[in-house]
Design a binder for these strands. Structure first.
Lengths: 340, 340
DNA sequence: TTGTATGCGTTATCAT
DNA sequence: ATGATAACGCATACAA
């Protein structure tokens, strides 16, 4: 026998009809226990495995599509890991596509998810609007850690996050607090939210928003890593340099650490630094980054629950979720030194 | 119309039979150009998308199963990212399952791949032997960055890798070179290979293999992170402490850095350190880890090519591939100080 | 309680 | 060159 066994094979070996096998598979109570056992035994014996493709023609598929910008980005990888875990707990698999941020590639990758008839799509990064449109109306979608106007999302209160960061720094005596949101060209809403929180914190303390303390990357095209580094060095080299920096991403914070090391600016003595995300490496002793943590496990769990809920219950009254972000104090922040 | 359009809808709208639509879809040359265009236009117009599930009943599926131990592990995440990329270039998607290293979970996750009738399975971590058996004989499989007796694999020459590491350290004047292979309990073959390379390097230089310089984790059960840290501290605290360490993984090297920092052992002045894998963070200025790099892109490309090849050509004469590993010198290694 | 018949969307075979 | 028809493996409504 070359091809995998089917329910028909099971039925033959068990001496029942294929419907009975199907009923056993579906856990229908209408099957005599004795027969049920016999069927289950022969299933095990001949190594029968349901064909999910065939099954998906009659039932909703148990595959969740996950669209991620870049798996090499630890935040995305860690979030995807949690999503896979929670999906598995609910007997769902994940079909993972990575877009690399290229819009043209994006819709091509999304197409494969559609063709696989995934039960729902989880976006870990913001798709191009035309890409999103190509998804159609009928496939449930959930945005995770990103938001999209008019769409359901599970995300953290980013604005409050950077506000907490600023508050923390102000509590430490800092006044010259910079905001750096490089590498966020692809996520203008995240950039805007995190910037707003920075503004909130500064305003509340009566501090001005000085353009010379801002390094933002909005809407436009993203630059090279080298270019980012140059801009950061510029920020840290100016005569009236900041005593503290709020980075909109841990990845940026890592670059700022590198730049500070290069310029012999000591962290946290000469410069305090707060990141955002709390990716795994941020906890390492050599980094010890004070940062705003996103509760990735809750994010993932809520997202998976919502996605599966939408796929099944046709999602009446489903709502977006906004989780709290939380300041994790480590060793990149300290009181402002009076001499500076 | 609630459900997505089918070829029948296309056929109706285009005024042809569904066979013709199918032929157009399959790129058969037997269709008149005029008809072909008309069909393609209506496909675009009504937004038809092939149903991969239905298609997979007559053809080989274009989905690759990827089994990964832990996506939070950057090495696995980065490798998976490359695999997804190369698979996409060949019109394949990846169904990603993570096992978390639990054998019981492993076979359950693998079962979902079987049920989805994936064209092939790529293992990024070694499955339990009974798990592997449950895959059966008929699904092609490729082991990536891990090996399995009697199975096809794409991996790097790990033995030569650690040998290079030792050679590098010896060239810098080190004699007391330790080997640490914690966190590798789940991958005994990797552990063994990397240890052999260490032995090769030491033997070639006529140096003894001293048990007090070995921190290995073979076969047995893996411990907690805290336990690892204690063991590393023990190694670095002994009176005749090593002047250099070969870590079998970058992850271990990161822990060694933490421990050294804790003990006020300066790297590389008091202790040289070489890792293995070259994950993204190893290049960061605060880490700057000298390490043995695995060519993840080549690993992924070869693996995807092989997997797809096996799935299609029934893989006659397919062979395992052993790629070269390469020493990347950064700043955790330096000449042994004469006073030590 | 079990078996039969039908449809799901697609490809493949075979006439036409 | 095109179209009718039979699989593919499964679930389901319905008949027995």
């Amino acid at each position: 026998m070359r091809r995998p066994p089917t329910i028909i094979d099971v039925a033959l070996h068990a001496g029942v009809s294929k419907s009975t096998v199907s009923n056993v598979l579906q856990g229908k109570g209408t099957v005599a226990p004795e027969i049920r056992d016999r069927v289950q035994r022969t299933i095990a014996k001949i190594g029968y495995r349901p064909n999910a493709g065939a099954r998906s023609m009659r039932q909703r598929s148990k595959v969740l599509g996950v669209v991620v910008g870049d798996l090499k980005n630890p935040f995305h990888a860690e979030l995807a890991a949690f999503i896979e875990q929670f999906a598995a707990e609910q007997q769902h698999s994940i079909l993972l596509v990575s877009t690399g941020g290229f819009p043209e590639r994006e819709s091509e990758r999304l197409r494969t998810l559609i063709e696989q008839r995934v039960a729902a799509v989880l976006f870990l990064s913001s798709p191009d609007s035309s890409t999103l449109k190509s998804l159609g109306e009928d496939i449930p979608r959930v945005f995770v850690s990103v938001t999209m106007p008019g769409e359901l999302s599970i995300s953290v209160d980013e604005r409050d996050g950077t506000r907490q960061a600023v508050e923390h720094l102000i509590g430490l005596g800092h006044r010259q607090i910079a905001f750096v949101s490089l590498m966020l060209a692809d996520e203008p809403r995240i950039e805007a939210n995190r910037f707003q929180g920075y503004v909130d914190g500064m305003m509340k303390a009566g501090l001005p928003i000085s353009p010379s303390l801002l390094l933002r990357e909005q809407g436009g095209s993203s630059s090279s890593l080298q270019e980012y580094e140059n801009q950061i060095i510029g920020l840290l080299s100016q005569q009236d340099r900041p005593t503290a920096v709020v980075a909109a991403l841990d990845r940026i914070a890592l670059e700022i650490i590198s730049a500070a090391d290069l310029l012999n600016i000591a962290i946290p003595d000469d410069l305090s630094l707060v990141g955002f995300d709390d990716v795994g490496i941020s906890g390492h002793s050599r980094i010890a980054l004070t940062t705003i943590a996103q509760p990735m496990d809750e994010l993932a769990k809520s997202a998976v629950d919502l996605a599966i809920g939408l796929a099944h219950n046709n999602g009446k009254g489903a709502e977006s979720v906004l989780l709290a972000s939380r300041l994790v104090k480590r060793r990149t922040t300290s009181s402002r030194k009076s001499d500076s």
